[in-house]
Simulated assay, not measured.
Amino acid sequence: MLFRRMSPEEAYVKAGRIAKEVVERGVKRIEEEAYILEICEKVEDDIIGFGGKPAFPCNVSQNEEAAHYTAAPFDKKKIERGALVKLDIGVHVEGFIADVAITIGLSKRWDNLVNAARETLKYALMKVEPGLSFSTFGGYVEDKARSLGYITIENLAGHRLGPYILHAGESVPNRRTLTSSSFKVKEAYAIEPFIVELGADAVVIGKGKSNIYRLSSFKKIKDKKMGRIVLELWSKYKGLPFASRWIVNEYGENGLKILDQLVKKGIVHSYPVLVEASNAPVAQFEHTILIKEDRIIVTTA
């Protein structure tokens, strides 16, 4: 029996369908005092169980954390009482990625912010069309957020997706910006406005030790064991991000020491947690789209 590889569109759509199901299940696990480690592991298990693979570690970021918090090995961190929680997950099928995020407010005081973030994404998706410039699109997103009484974060953006590439060289801004890029047919993009209250700095800074890594170089390594691990990381993740806890599961706690050495050598890149500079709470919603000549497919909806 011959095995037929999926077309890129089929793979994008399947990844999106899995991501939609997984994020809906994940939302039910966001509760006060829940362990973030358990949430991340269950979400990632669900991705695999539904026939996909994680495109990056499950992110569970709270309050002023905008993105990139994933559980460390043996993490004891919990969901805070009354928190504003961002659940961001990535799924890939044969390298074709679906990226989706949702914000859950565990207190009614977040209702307006959460609703504004949801409406800003909904409006942004309605504006996308082939050939639309990113500059014009960013203006649409910025204006919508402001009309609702909020502002988009200046240095966080959506991004074009590629096979096994989460950020494929083009950022999709959430503000007006000078760029010659535009939405192109047959390309996939993650659309993700991040918003905060007016008066916030509305920029993010890196803070805290990262638990997310990515193989970024193939420099020659004299240490044979380290070189073997680099090859295994490439074989398994193909340049996509991975979690430090995945390394512990694979290589034991000694794997963390090797990971630190690879970071120092510039072979592995580490991602810090992104925090709003004035500690303003951040809300985010995200969908993945595939541009067709006659329509826009929201793969994660």
Rank of each mutant, 00 (worst) to 15 (best):
37 L>Q: 11
37 L>Y: 15
37 L>G: 05
39 I>C: 03
42 K>E: 11
43 V>G: 01
43 V>D: 02
43 V>Y: 03
44 E>K: 02
44 E>W: 02
44 E>Y: 02
45 D>N: 10
46 D>K: 04
47 I>S: 00
47 I>G: 00
47 I>K: 02
47 I>Y: 00
49 G>R: 07
49 G>V: 06
50 F>S: 01
51 G>Y: 09
53 K>R: 15
53 K>Q: 14
54 P>T: 08
55 A>W: 04
57 P>H: 02
58 C>I: 10
58 C>D: 14
58 C>V: 13
59 N>S: 12
59 N>E: 12
60 V>P: 00
60 V>L: 02
60 V>N: 00
61 S>T: 08
61 S>M: 10
61 S>H: 07
62 Q>L: 08
63 N>H: 08
67 A>W: 10
67 A>D: 13
67 A>G: 06
70 T>R: 07
70 T>D: 07
70 T>E: 10
71 A>I: 09
72 A>F: 15
73 P>M: 07
74 F>C: 13
74 F>T: 11
75 D>M: 07
75 D>K: 05
76 K>F: 06
76 K>M: 08
76 K>E: 14
77 K>G: 09
77 K>P: 06
77 K>W: 08
78 K>Y: 09
78 K>F: 09
83 A>Y: 03
85 V>M: 05
87 L>P: 01
88 D>C: 13
89 I>S: 01
89 I>A: 01
90 G>I: 10
90 G>Q: 07
90 G>L: 11
91 V>N: 09
92 H>N: 13
94 E>Q: 12
94 E>S: 15
95 G>L: 15
96 F>R: 04
96 F>K: 00
98 A>Q: 05
100 V>H: 06
103 T>P: 02
107 S>K: 11
108 K>R: 15
109 R>A: 05
109 R>N: 10
114 V>G: 02
115 N>E: 12
117 A>F: 03
119 E>R: 12
121 L>W: 00
121 L>V: 02
122 K>Q: 13
122 K>M: 10
122 K>V: 13
126 M>F: 13
127 K>V: 15
128 V>K: 12
130 P>Q: 11
130 P>Y: 08
131 G>C: 06
133 S>T: 11
136 T>V: 11
137 F>T: 01
137 F>K: 02
138 G>Q: 03
143 D>A: 03
143 D>T: 01
144 K>P: 00
144 K>A: 02
145 A>T: 01
147 S>K: 08
150 Y>H: 01
153 I>S: 04
154 E>K: 12
154 E>N: 12
155 N>T: 14
155 N>V: 05
157 A>P: 04
157 A>Y: 06
158 G>L: 05
158 G>M: 07
158 G>C: 04
158 G>S: 09
159 H>I: 12
160 R>K: 15
164 Y>K: 10
164 Y>L: 14
169 G>I: 05
170 E>D: 09
171 S>N: 14
171 S>K: 10
172 V>F: 03
173 P>M: 08
174 N>L: 08
176 R>I: 05
177 T>Y: 10
179 T>V: 11
179 T>G: 11
180 S>K: 15
180 S>C: 09
180 S>I: 14
